[in-house]
Amino acid sequence: MSKAVLVDIRKCIGCRACQVACKRWNDRKSEKTVLNATPGLEWTNPSDLSPRTYTYIRFIGRGSGDDFRWHFLKIQCNHCVEPGCASVCPTKALSKSVEGPVLYDVEKCIGCKYCISGCPFNVPRFDEEKHIIEKCTFCADRLAEGLKPACVAACPTGALSMHERNEVIQLAESARSNGAHIYGKDEVGGTSWVYVSDIPLTELGLPQHDSKNPTAYVTDMLLKVGLLGVVGAGALYGLGVYSKRRSRLEKTVHNNCGSTDKSTASPRKGEE
């Protein structure tokens, strides 16, 4: 059965235990980070994903005065039900497993980086030294042993919890019926990491996506490209017909003018 994680950011306190657990389990070395200069995101550290950072907590300050509140948004690979990265990958180095994780096979990868552009959440990172892709693995090795992902196991508040995907959807829907906002149930055809929040997740920086999965997205784009092609071909044909007519007309006018000129031309001397 396919596993999924519910990320209830209403319960997150920003302790970053998940960040640390991920680093330790996946043996990701530390890296020099810089202060996040984006207003409202100053406490976010590290500021972004990297080959050495599979997950981080985005600290988002909203409101002012007594209304000021922090929102802690965990960012990682969302392990889409039908992953955009896998659908564009020419070598099938990326694939969705039945258990839930989107897996990366370094042996197949040629380093083309198309997955980076194909991911709707801008997650995969390219390791310039090793020339390979790095991203959250959903701790597939731990799942295989019946364990929870390191970040989920480390979360002290229950903001992260792992279940079967249909259970996660039920929990998310139940939260929505109580006024919460959810993200990942339908976006890009659904993800295995589903968010629950008290404000819309897109307002916290998650990208706005419709429910089209990659196949539907590509089909839709292809139809539009094809339609434009038909319109363009029609316009070209019309222009061709118009241009031919015009040149024929010009020739006719030219010939008529020529014959008129001859008939009205004054006779030469001696012909009078």
Binding site: S87, P90, T91, K108, C112, T215
Partner: peptide
Amino acid sequence: NVFNNLSSMM
């Protein structure tokens, strides 16, 4: 390997 995935534009 680049020819592995016929649904990829690449």
